[in-house]
Design a binder for these strands. Structure first.
Length: 271
DNA sequence: AATCGCGCCTGACGGC
DNA sequence: TGCCGTCAGGCGCGAT
């Protein structure tokens, strides 16, 4: 599920229900995620108070008393809060039980997720240190993208999905942003002009911000409800719409694999 | 140095 | 009904 907007929506939904709580116990049912969860993790977590929940790219950072619990939702991961002792479901691999009895559960059917404890500055950790600028922070601009893309032959779509270039853009929002910026996803990154990079930067910001806004409107519904966090209804202009008419010109939208990922676009509106 | 393709997993879906 | 192939919103790794 998660690209930046879904992770951010999860963070916003989670913050009011976990900040300030102390971990009373931890259950690890299935330790074998992308990296196997160390057997010592529960002991490390018990007694930790959650001071804040932050996000970097698609990672969630639970800032605790003595360190940071880093979580990546992978492809299918989600979190949900349990307030009444609802039984765990299939693929509820890990849970944190808090001092007030509430439970945070991590469900991940494909187990591409990552969960690890970091004692030092998490931003210096190898998983986070290489990440590019946050697209909504203002650090991202057209000149930066143009400079990084210089001489690169990689398709622009794969380029903006590179987390060391921009943090948080995944397969859906890459297609959506390129459509909005009217750029063909197959274009080698090094061939784009500065004005196109500026348009693409604007488009990335717009599609992500709109998705976060859509997520925010559903957030009140998550409070005190036992549902997966971070899911919200979202309609896309091109993603998943091969064969349907382009919302601009009416031509059938196309789909093509670029770097092993399905990419949706309009061959008339995007150049 | 940059790029490609694979593997990690399970589940849903369509064709036969 | 079952079996099989394909596809799925991610990412790091090794080979080229």
């Amino acid at each position: 599920m998660p690209e930046l907007p879904e992770v951010e929506t999860t963070r916003r939904g989670l913050s009011p229900v976990v900040i300030g709580k102390v971990v009373r116990s931890v259950i690890v049912r299935v330790p074998k995620l992308r990296q196997t969860i160390p057997a010592a993790l529960p002991d490390v977590l018990v007694g930790q108070r959650i001071l804040d929940v932050k996000r970097r790219a698609k990672y969630l950072l639970f800032c605790c008393t003595d360190g940071t619990l880093l979580l990546h939702l992978g492809m299918t991961g989600y979190l949900w809060m349990v307030f009444n002792s609802a039984p765990p479901g299939r693929h509820d691999h890990i849970e944190l039980i808090f001092d007030d009895g509430s439970i945070l559960r991590f469900n991940d059917s494909r187990r591409f997720g990552t969960l690890l404890w970091i004692e030092d500055d998490p931003l210096e950790h190898s998983l986070l240190a290489h990440l590019g600028p946050e697209p909504l922070d203002g650090a991202l601009n057209g000149a930066y993208l143009a400079r990084l893309a210089q001489g690169r032959k990689l398709c622009v779509k794969a380029f903006i999905m590179d987390q060391s270039v921009v943090a948080g853009v995944g397969n859906i929002y890459a297609s959506e942003a390129l459509f909005r910026a009217r750029i063909l996803p197959q274009t080698p990154a090094g061939q784009l002009h500065l004005t196109q990079w500026q348009a693409l930067r604007d488009a990335i910001k717009t599609v992500l911000a709109e998705a976060i806004a859509a997520g925010a409107t559903t957030l009140h519904a998550f409070r005190k409800t036992e549902k997966p966090l971070g899911y919200f209804p979202m309609t896309f202009k091109v993603y998943g719409r091969a064969g349907e008419p382009c919302p601009n010109c009416g031509r059938p939208l196309l789909v093509e694999k670029i770097g092993q990922r399905s990419s949706y676009y309009c061959c008339r509106c995007q150049r």
